[in-house]
Amino acid sequence: MSRALQEPAAEVRPLLSVSGLTKDHGGGHGCHDVAFELWPGEILGVVGESGAGKSTLLDCLGGFAAPDAGRADYQSRLFGPVEIFGLSEARRRRLARSEWGFVHQDARRGLRLSVSAGGNIGERLMAGGARHYGDLRARAGAWLERLELDPSRLDEAPRQFSGGMRQRLQIARNLVTEPRLLLMDEPTGGLDLSVQARLLDLLRGLVRDLGLSVVLVTHDLGVVRLLCDRMLVMERGRVVEEGLTDQVLEDPQHAHSQRLVASILPV
């Protein structure tokens, strides 16, 4: 099969390669000397207890915080290989609204609550130069459906949506430009269990269909088990263990990983 011959070449090159990433918030908080690679089509889970530095790591990658040290090399569709912390602001923001997505735990941070669902989804397209109202509307409607939201609610503002619906809208708003890299911070946090399950399942399908690569921060090992190919375990700002999800969950090496794994309820 020609596919079998092509694939390894694509696989040996990581989409994102982070090294020495350090952001000191003082008092032992932040992240220290974090290094990892993210491969195309891969979902990487970052787990740890609160204060372990997972969100700091994600904020640095998402441009919400400036790291003290370290680099992150990214294979851009637009610009080729780039080091994202050294990018000009113009380029970084251009990537952030086209090739990257950021899903906040609190959907209110990632949405415009007073703007209709359609306007929320269309914004990245408009930022990219889309100027045809009919097209924008059609594409926004299609994305609502893809996220299992009722397309007849296109003109409603997310204020009127439930928590789970808002989260799906936030994801639609990010995916409309078909990004390569999605950063997610506790995307199922604060949602009911049944709503979580639905969201996780949707994400699995979207990641496969769109060939997305994801860095997903969570403290929920159940989410990691369902969604992630590989995981990092963080403790006090450092990565203490890394491996395929089943490796870390079934054969945790580090004391902290063993404690985390021992604390999950049997499924």
Binding site: R93, V115, E123
Partner: peptide, 18 residues
């Protein structure tokens, strides 16, 4: 500075939608 004017179109979009 970066000529990022997507949000200006969002408000036009909202008017047409409404």
């Amino acid at each position: 500075a970066l000529a990022e004017y997507g949000s200006a179109y969002v408000s036009l979009y909202e008017q047409v939608a409404r």
